[in-house]
Amino acid sequence: MVNYLLRSGAMKLSLRKINDLTDAEVEDKLKLLRWPSTNGEPVCPDCACDAVYVIATRSQYRCMRCGHTFSITSGTVFHSTKLSLRSILQLGLLWANAAKGKSALELRRDIGMNHKCSFVLLHKLREALLTTADDTPMDGEVETIFHTPLHN
């Protein structure tokens, strides 16, 4: 079994590629991550309606059915941050690709954000994983693979 991070699919996005993207392309990537079932088209988080229009001056959307105003980060751990969408995408990439976790100090250095912000965001990401974890017991045939360290 090959480590996920070594597969070619894991290398579709890198920090270099993120930095080369335009602001519109960064927004499109995040929309695809946020709304994969509609191919990146916004969906109202309140009523699940896909009939929305753009409020361009505020980079937000408004639902035509219920009138709810929302953005790409609404309802996520990033909803109250002042980070740019590019920084959010960079943070997500660095955090997801860190094989043994990512510290707040590392994120502070890598992205150039303040330590308190990186500390809080990492805790929010970890908490989101815990609250959305599926705790149902596995059934059927379950296979585990143990890796032993190599000795010189």
Rank of each mutant, 00 (worst) to 15 (best):
S80D: 13
T144H: 09
Q90S: 13
G101P: 01
L93C: 02
V26Q: 00
E27W: 04
M138C: 09
D110T: 02
L107F: 04
R109L: 07
H123D: 04
M11L: 14
K29I: 09
D23S: 10
R16Y: 10
L122W: 08
E41S: 11
L6F: 15
M64N: 11
K31Y: 03
N97Q: 14
C47V: 03
K17Q: 11
A99F: 09
A96Y: 08
A10E: 12
C49F: 01
K116S: 05
L13G: 07
L93K: 05
K17G: 02
S103P: 00
T136N: 14
S8I: 11
W35E: 06
T136I: 02
D50Y: 11
E143T: 09
F78Y: 13
E106Q: 12
D20C: 05
P149K: 12
E106K: 02
E141N: 13
Y4H: 07
S74N: 01
P149E: 13
L30F: 06
E41N: 12
F78C: 01
F70K: 08
P42E: 04
T132E: 06
K116N: 12
H147M: 06
I18Q: 06
D46I: 06
L21C: 05
G40H: 04
I111M: 09
F78N: 03
D20T: 08
D139A: 11
G140M: 05
L6V: 11
A96Q: 06
T57E: 11
Q90F: 06
R62Y: 01
T148G: 05
N97W: 12
H123S: 00
L33Y: 13
T144Y: 11
M64D: 11
A98N: 03
P137N: 03
M64A: 10
L21F: 14
T57F: 14
D28F: 03
D139Q: 13
L121M: 08
A133T: 05
T131P: 00
G67T: 00
L13K: 05
K31W: 06
A96G: 08
I55T: 10
D23G: 03
L105I: 04
R108N: 10
Y61C: 02
A133P: 02
L5S: 13
A24L: 09
A24H: 04
A48S: 08
F70P: 09
R16K: 10
S103G: 02
C44I: 00
P149D: 13
K82R: 15
S80L: 07
R65N: 14
M1E: 10
A24G: 02
T38N: 06
F78K: 01
C44T: 05
A51G: 08
T131W: 02
D20I: 07
Y53W: 11
I72V: 12
H115T: 04
C44L: 02
Q60E: 12
T131R: 10
T57G: 07
A128G: 00
V142M: 12
A51V: 14
A128D: 01
S84D: 07
S87G: 09
Q90M: 13
L121C: 01
D110K: 05
L89V: 03
V26H: 04
K17Y: 15
G140E: 02
M138R: 15
